[in-house]
Design a protein around this nucleic acid. Structure first.
Lengths: 337, 337
DNA sequence: CTGAGGAATGTTTACGTTAACATTCCGTTG
DNA sequence: CAACGGAATGTTAACGTAAACATTCCTCAG
């Protein structure tokens, strides 16, 4: 059997048992005070006996809203950023006593249209779409006119609100931070070459260097692990000019640092290193890695706000949430040469 | 305005515009084939023009189920285990094309009763309750007779299905693994003394040692960080008999290993170390930490199954999901003394 | 040409709830 | 004691959908 929506026990069932009208039961269920204590007690007893639960379906059919926000995701749900943003949505929802309705699309390549059309049939007052970064129909997607829609994406959309963390800003901040410390030879050590966040971090780094008139040395790539970072770090040792390394994530940064140190270089005295994501959280003893911390929770929170309380204006907002550099101990003034 | 459930546009609005009956529109919406192509086309056009979306509320009011599973959590939602289990629920749900409805209870001390009563009013066909480990009303809680209920908890419940990962089993496996490798002096290095998982891991370790007739040396405690592990590791160096360390999580294990090595001991030749959670994932170069991996995703998946497809029997099931030791390079045969 | 039969479409009804309005039953007041 | 008024409770209707049944229309066999 399909479990009844609600419990299969209705107001009128309770009413019959308690010897009152359905409306009175409804009043009790909704804590109206226009019920005699004695009646209320009888009704409550009847509810209890029958296992009455109000029907969400019937209630929202009348009320016209659901107090829930929808989140549709495809692809890797475990990646740190996506996870934190999801948690941000959930927490923001909880603060307003909303539920979060999550659907995961099995198809990695799912389109916005597919996601939206599945979500349209669910009990949500607004939807947040968080798919892979290269959705096919991004440009052409037309959001339902009747369901406030937010896309989590760094790209702007002509008809939907978008929000994301500022990947470019991360690179710019890091480059400028190094420059402020006197560095001019700033290298990039990447993760997987084809990954979206790697591409955008590298692009930001490159642009920042160019606009500031600094030399761009061909970046290196590996996977996202510390072992890979170590290997790349060993190659980096040859690069005598380099005094600053921007690693595409923290594990790589760790690998690079270990390699540099094994090669006899001091960090940060000889070479400064910054990671990205600020994901280590006390996992390595005595390593105080300077890193860039994104504000993922806030991205989720903003997405929730936009989805449940869409702004009136004509132009949909496009929001980039900045993060910040968490200063620790792997960056120093550039050494005099 | 509260956004309409559905779109505020109903079947009959579409019907009027398309010049057909509401039922015909319904048929189109549900992909029935009993509609002439020409009619279907007209209806689809009308739907599009009006921005029609089916009303979830009305549909489920008729259908009697929601195709969604509820998950209520309180406390720390970011902790690794809880996060993975949550993801397990979501993934299992996705496989069956269910949604997951998540509510976070702001109150850390929320009771099962509170969680359940909030969930009872939501569009879910079953509920999973995952609160703090020491809910006040655990023993007395009476699940709604009409909503299949699963509690994620290591404790057994007389009236609810429960599932969790096997914290005790973790300790037992680790102790036995050490014993198999010839170790007899097995120490425990804990995290926060009052934390639930620390307590149960320590208890398991102690019991296992006792039943196997091995010496129990008073365990140490810190917080959960590598720095804390390092400090405790330094103290451990005094303990000349010790050949095996069970660290309450991986960060602590890392700290211990660094300390031992800094003190001139070799890992694993002199001392073997095992962590728990298997959480490092390539974050530290050349450290192949043997660790115990819980099967959290599966816990979530089982919870989903129990909640949406409750077993018939009288006695509610109590399931402990075993994990496994992931053998890497920090454990060796006990040294000859 | 007639009627059977099937395809397409329409009509009715019920799902459970609650707002709005209607009724009943008091005690109180003039 | 009658009339008023407010508290408690009951009745009706509507929310949007889809199953069940009813009707219409067309085709095709006889």
């Amino acid at each position: 059997m399909a479990h009844g929506s609600g419990s299969g026990v209705s107001l009128s069932d309770v009413a019959k048992l308690a010897g009152v009208s359905a409306q009175t039961v409804s009043r009790v269920a909704n804590c109206s005070d226009a019920v005699r204590p004695e009646t209320r007690k009888r009704v409550l007893a009847a509810m209890d006996e029958l296992g009455y639960r109000p029907s969400f379906a019937a209630r929202s059919l009348r009320a016209g809203c659901y107090y829930s926000v929808g989140l549709a995701m495809s692809g890797d749900i475990a990646a740190t950023g996506r996870r934190l943003q999801r948690e941000g949505v959930a927490v923001a929802a909880a603060k307003r006593r909303y539920a979060m309705t999550l659907i995961l699309l099995e198809d990695e390549e799912a389109t916005l249209e597919e996601a939206s059309s599945r979500m349209s049939c669910l009990p949500v007052d607004g939807q947040i779409l968080y798919l892979g970064s290269s959705t096919e129909d991004f440009a052409t997607f037309e959001p339902p006119s009747t369901l406030p829609t937010v896309i989590i994406s760094t790209r702007h959309h002509p008809r939907c609100a978008t929000v994301s963390n500022d990947q470019m800003g991360c690179s710019v901040s890091i480059v400028d931070y190094f420059i402020k410390k006197g560095h001019r030879e700033i290298r990039f050590v990447g993760g997987r070459r084809d990954s979206y966040s790697n591409i955008s971090r590298q692009k930001g780094w490159e642009q920042a260097l160019r606009t500031r008139g600094l030399r761009v040395v061909e970046p290196m790539h590996g996977d996202w692990t510390a072992d890979s970072g170590y290997e790349l770090g060993m190659r980096l040792v040859q690069d005598r000019a380099c005094t600053a390394v921007y690693a595409s994530n923290d594990a790589i940064a760790v690998g690079v640092i270990y390699a540099l140190r094994d090669a006899g270089l001091r960090v940060p005295e000889d070479v400064s290193v910054i990671g990205a994501d600020d994901s280590l959280e006390g996992v390595i003893p005595h390593l105080d890695l300077t890193s860039y911390r994104f504000n993922d929770r806030q991205v989720g929170s903003i997405a929730f706000d936009l989805a449940t309380n869409p702004p009136e204006g004509k132009e949909p907002p496009h929001i980039l949430v900045p993060g910040m550099i968490v200063e620790r101990k792997t960056v120093a003034q550039a050494p005099q040469r």
